[in-house]
Structures are given as C-alpha cells and as structure tokens.
Nucleic acid binder design. Structure first.
Lengths: 244, 244
DNA sequence: TAGTGGTCTAGACCACTTC
DNA sequence: AAGTGGTCTAGACCACTAG
C-alpha cells in the first residue's frame, strides 16, 4: 500500500473511511483515475489499503452521493465524467417552460487572454500579475438564443485554452485536457435590466428584465477555477431549483 | 411489532431497510412522531421490527440525508422540525449581498378563502369544487421590503387557517397545527417586469426587473400542499443556489 | 459461471452526553 | 456508569451483468 492510514488512537481523530475517501479523491484529483474509467472493486481497494470491504464501501457511497463516482450493480464503479447528461442535471439548471430539458448550443463570440482585473482577482483568488482567459459566448435552447455569458478562468491552470477551438462542453475539456475536475459550484441569481451588448444578442429591448447568474465553480480541492456570469432571457424558459 | 415486513424472496423485491424507512416515515407523516421529538434508539427500533441494528441505521441515515431526522451523538435521534434555522438553510434561498443570512420578517396583506381557479387546480391537483386559502404578504430583510408573495393552500388540509393570526413561520404551523410536513419543494425562477401592485409595495418603478419565484411544496407523501409565487427585488440581495 | 455491487447480520469497540 | 450514536470488522447471501 502506498498511502499510510493512521490509527484511531490519535488525538486528531479521523474515521478510517474518511481517510480512505481522501486517498481515492486524490487519485481523481491527480488524474490517476480519469473520468469514465472503472476503478478497482471494493475488495481490491480494501486489500490494498488494509481495511475491511465495508469501510471502503462507506467511502465509495459518500463519493457517489457527491457525484464523484457512479456505481452500477454487476458492472463496477466508475469515475463520474462531465458528459452532457451530468452537466444537464448537475450544472445547467435552465429548462424550457414546456418541460423539455436539453443541452444548450453555443456560439463563441470572443476568446482572449488578459491580466486579471481586481474583481476577477477577488473571485478567483488571484493576484494582479496573474493572467486569465476570458470567453464570451451565446447559448441557445430550442434554436433561440437565451444566454449571453462571460467565462473567466486562470490562465495558469488552462494553458493554451485561448488558442484553438472552444467546445460546447467546457467542463469536459477542463477534465480531459487540463486534469481539472469541477466538483461543485455556487450561483447567485438576480433579476437585472438587460445591458445593451446582451440586448442585441438576445433580441431584447435594452433594460428588459433578464436573469443574471453569477457562478463560481470549484475543483476537488475547493479552489475556485472558473467565474461565469450568464445573462438569460426567461420569457420561454426558467431556472429550476429543487429544495430538499 | 405492529407493521409487517415482507421477506426478500418475493418478486416485488424491496430492501428491508427501505421497508423500515417507509414505516418510520409514516410515523412522522401520521403525526405519531412530532417535530423536535426524540425517537427510540436504533436497538429499540431494531428489536421492535425484528431486524438488525445495522439495517435500522441505514434507514435512519437515509432519512437524515433527506433532512427528515437530526442525529446527535450521545443524545439521540430527533424528528427535524421546521424551525427558523431549517427554513433558512433549506427553504429560504434569498440572502443579502453583504453575506448576512437572516430569517425575513413578514407583514400579512390579506387572507381569504375562495374556490380554486383553474391554474391553482392544476398546480395543487384540485378540482373546481375545492376551496383554497390565499395569503398575500410582504417580507423584509434588514428592514427593507424585498418580497411580495402570494401563498395558496388547499382549504381542506388547513381548516380555519384563514381565521386568526398568520405567523411568520408558516411551515412550522403546517406541521404543528395541521400535521402537514413540508418535505421538499421545487422552484422555477424567472426575471420579470414588476407588476403595479408589487411595485408600490416594494418601492420600485413599474416594470423594474424583479425575480419571480414560483414554488410548489410537497408533503411526505409527495402530494402538493402549497403553491407560492414570490416577487423579489434583488438590488441588495440575491438567490443562492449551490450545485453539487 | 465468475465478478461486480447491494443487502443483511452479529458483534466489538470508540466518542459523546448525561447523570 | 449507562445510554446514545459512530466506526469497523467479518462473513453470508442476493441481484445484476457479461462472457
């Protein structure tokens, strides 16, 4: 076994299953276990780490509850990938009023690399010397442009992102090309008057009400990795929030 | 044991812990276990239902994850109550921009009982003959009126609600006085132009952008028990949504 | 048939709270 | 010291998938 688990007599007590979980999360964070890949069975992990299979199960169940793993009876346990389905249900909360749920199309407006302005520095925990990549794009649902969004990421974690294609499924690219796993995000929503630049793009009058979504996304270590501001026209669609 | 658990050879297979959970949920739904009350220990429940303590634990852990129970090591397991804290973190997602999180004050504008209109019938699964109680109120954060909301509930489940005081913490009253536990809700958010009636109350210009929150709340059986439409001014506050 | 995850049990011991 | 929930183990058996 490569990692060392501490006994439970220590004052800084941490449950075994927590330590097991930390080890496994690190393997995903380090990219040793990639999205979509099947991981070893419970018994194999248990033997490797010298714990019982039940302890491994508790760690895996925790990670499954946090959408880091997907378990399929009879097949195996897989690292969750940022495919369109996961995005759709975990990270994209906009749905059409007719109940249809679909992955939005994207048109990139601009991509560029600049120094981080003060607001961005604060959002992404950067300093003035740091560079960021800024992506502006429009997104459509059912053929209608409904979102104008600005995405800002630290250039250091995504070298070369500003060159070449910007695909629709960004979080998939973060994971596959840069080994950055977006694990969670928080969003702040406001109703605001539509600014001119977005009004043109969305086919709205200036000052029409639009939904502003200010999102900060974090990786597995809790480090902010993306700041995104989306302006959405919500006459034909809505933001869906489940409270439970 | 009063309830009968089925063996696991049956074709309609249901895990034991699921059956245990159903039994315990029913006790809360029926009001036999009230909010805030301590329930029997794992061993007592296990003995009563003739299952192992581990099986009871899995049922209790599930219910804890769904915010139906609160477990405190060394003390016991308690039925979750709709106190201000739970509402604040589970059912009230509006927070001030300065980061303060507080329970809003309420001023009731009107309370009345009428027949359910077609839209309400559809939302709450009622028929034309059914009556509903409608509450209109204003809510404040930090002394500022920020929400104008309309709440509609089936009169049959809340007899007499339209008479007497309407307290600030409605879900607490649903539970304590009517035995109705709000277990989950879903909200649809839009940015809309402020209608005249709300503009006056919120100190906004007509057509100013406001956040519209359309909420349907469900009880433990999954029956819709409340429809609520909130119009919020979001210049000093925001709707907080955590994606994980 | 073999391998995976899912359920269930029984028992030991630890951590926290209260008396 | 007694009672609660929390962790950990070991082993049995069931359900699902694939070859």
């Amino acid at each position: 076994m490569e990692e060392t688990l501490i006994g439970n007599g220590a004052p800084g007590f941490r449950p075994l299953y927590r330590q097991v979980k930390d080890v496994l999360v690190r393997r995903i964070a380090d990219g040793r276990w990639q999205g979509g890949q099947m991981i070893p069975s419970e018994f194999q992990i248990a033997a490797e780490l010298s714990v019982s299979q039940g302890t491994v199960r508790k760690a895996l169940d925790d990670m499954t509850a946090e959408n880091l793993l997907v378990r399929r009876q009879g097949k195996g346990t897989f690292v969750a990938s940022h495919d369109e389905n996961r995005i759709l249900f975990q990270f994209f909360k906009l749905g059409r009023d007719d109940g249809q749920r679909e992955f939005p199309e994207s048109e990139v407006v601009s991509v560029g690399r600049t120094r981080a302005d003060p607001v961005t520095q604060e959002k992404l925990a950067l300093v003035a010397a740091d560079s960021v990549v800024t992506i502006r794009r429009l997104r459509s649902l059912g053929g209608e442009r409904v979102i104008a969004e600005t995405i800002v990421v630290p250039a250091a974690r995504f070298p070369g992102l500003e060159r070449g294609e910007v695909p629709n499924n960004l979080y998939g690219v973060y994971a596959a090309r840069y080994g950055v796993t977006v694990a969670r995000a928080n969003e702040r929503l406001k109703a605001v008057a539509c600014p001119a630049f977005a009004a043109n793009a969305l086919g709205l009058a200036v000052d029409a009400p639009v939904l502003s979504i200010d999102r900060l996304a974090y990786d597995l270590d809790g480090t902010p990795v993306e700041w995104r501001l989306s302006l959405c026209r919500t006459d034909q669609c809505h933001y869906l929030s489940d409270l439970k």
